[in-house]
Every structure is written in structure tokens, then in C-alpha cells.
């Protein structure tokens, strides 16, 4: 299932770096999209980079996914975001990763669609918690239901894409892409 990296440090480094670059690219794309018009919470972000984290989790290893996720949050927060969006992103990313870890540990049989929906929801929940500490419990909490609804759709779409990508990429090792 996973691309073996144990014997090849350089390969691991390269793959992690490539994943990080891809995740940052997606993060930048988020930065370009005008989601502030839809969700007027300053600092709120979609979790497009979650696609890379999910793929890295199962194609590489959970540790690689954690590293990519953490570095992506830090770097894109410093480059494209503000301190506020970094904070939102960090909490969102943390919750999202914990959910990925949980689903892995219980060996959930759902496809990446379910994984993505749950990790997107966790990402939003994390952002709401961040917003609550900054703007007050009531303002932030009122957004939660809408964000959850949205996460079903974009999480589902991302998960569907992840399904397709994973199916292809997991054959990469065997040289059959």
C-alpha cells in the first residue's frame, strides 16, 4: 500500500518535499479565492491542502503526513496569511489531523469521501474554536452549522478526488501508473 521509504532517505525527503510544495500550492489557491464573501469570518480557510495530507498519510506514512501538514500550515501562514489565519489554520489542521489518526486507528471502512468529510468538519470545528477565543463564543458558534453543511459538500468532493488519486498513485510503486 505505501511507497516504501525506509531504505531510502533521499527518496523520502524528496517525496515529503514534493507533497509540501503541492500542499502549499493548494494553500495559495485558497488565498486567491474570495471566500470572505461567503463566510465573513476573518481568517477562515478551506482545507484544500487536506487532499495532500490524506494522500501522504496512506501513501507515505502518518508521520510524513503530520510533518507535511505542520510545515504547510507554518510556511503558508507566514507567506500568504496573517497571524490570525495562521492561528485558525493551526487549530483547524490539528483537529483535522487528529481525526485522520482516529480513523486510521479504528480501521474505518469508509472510502476517502467519508474521511475527507470528517476531517473537513474537524478542520472547521477547529477554526470555530479559534474564532471563539478571539471573537466570542456566540458569534463564532452561529457559523458552525453552515460550515458543517459546507464541509459535507467540499469534503465529499475532495474525498472523491482523493479516491481516484489514491487508486492510481498506490500503483506507482509497482510501476503501473
Amino acid at each position: 500500500m505505501s511507497i516504501s521509504w525506509r531504505d531510502n532517505r533521499v527518496r523520502r525527503l524528496t517525496l515529503d518535499a514534493a507533497a509540501l510544495a503541492l500542499a502549499m500550492g493548494l494553500s495559495y489557491l485558497e488565498f486567491l479565492l474570495p471566500i470572505a464573501a461567503v463566510v465573513p469570518l476573518p481568517g477562515f480557510r478551506l482545507g484544500l491542502a487536506n487532499l495532500v495530507v490524506m494522500l501522504a498519510f496512506y501513501l507515505l506514512s502518518p508521520l510524513d503526513a503530520a510533518i507535511v501538514s505542520a510545515l504547510r500550515i507554518l510556511l503558508s501562514g507566514l507567506l500568504f496569511g496573517s497571524a490570525v489565519s495562521l492561528y485558525f489554520s493551526a487549530l483547524g489542521g490539528l483537529c483535522s489531523y487528529l481525526v485522520l489518526l482516529l480513523l486510521y486507528c479504528i480501521r474505518a471502512k469508509c472510502s476517502f469521501v467519508g474521511v475527507s468529510i470528517l476531517s473537513a468538519s474537524a478542520h472547521n470545528a477547529g477554526q470555530i474554536i479559534a474564532a471563539m477565543t478571539l471573537y466570542g463564543a456566540l458569534v463564532a458558534r452561529s457559523y458552525l452549522p453552515y460550515l458543517l453543511l459546507a464541509s459535507i459538500f467540499y469534503g465529499g468532493a475532495l474525498g472523491f478526488l482523493c479516491n481516484l488519486l489514491f487508486a492510481r498513485l498506490s500503483k506507482m510503486e509497482e510501476g503501473r501508473v
Partner: peptide, 16 residues
């Protein structure tokens, strides 16, 4: 995880 959308995904979506 499977790579084909299945019933559990729907259950998850419905729960959320």
C-alpha cells in the same frame, strides 16, 4: 480505506 465510495460514506455525510 476503500477507494470506492460506499455506504459508510453516506452514513457519515448524513450524520454530519
Amino acid at each position: 480505506h476503500s477507494t470506492k465510495p460506499n455506504l459508510r460514506d453516506l452514513v457519515i455525510a448524513a450524520s454530519v
